[in-house]
Amino acid sequence: MAGHHIVPLKTNIITLLSLVVLTAVTVLTAKFIHLGDWGNLLLAMFIACCKATIVFGWFMHLKYEGLMNRTIALCGGAFLFLFILFAYLDIFFR
């Protein structure tokens, strides 16, 4: 049962290290790679989403959870995305 899957220390360490690496990537790409107004924003958000997925999956154990808890987490993100998207439909096309 997912609730009793004990995540070993090694997994947590690897998770932390990946997050630190991705943080470095975020900083380096933002400072040194210039992709224009939208490019850097989207790249940074993409990396942030990867980091969030790692935190959700390993630190928060979603990888070992059932479908419902994953759906709940996903719904939060999905509805937020839709909120941003539809607000942009207004602001972008004014």
Partner: peptide
């Protein structure tokens, strides 16, 4: 914070 950091400080 993972999202706040780049949005506020970096890009």
């Amino acid at each position: 914070w993972i999202f706040l950091f780049p949005l506020m400080y970096l890009i």
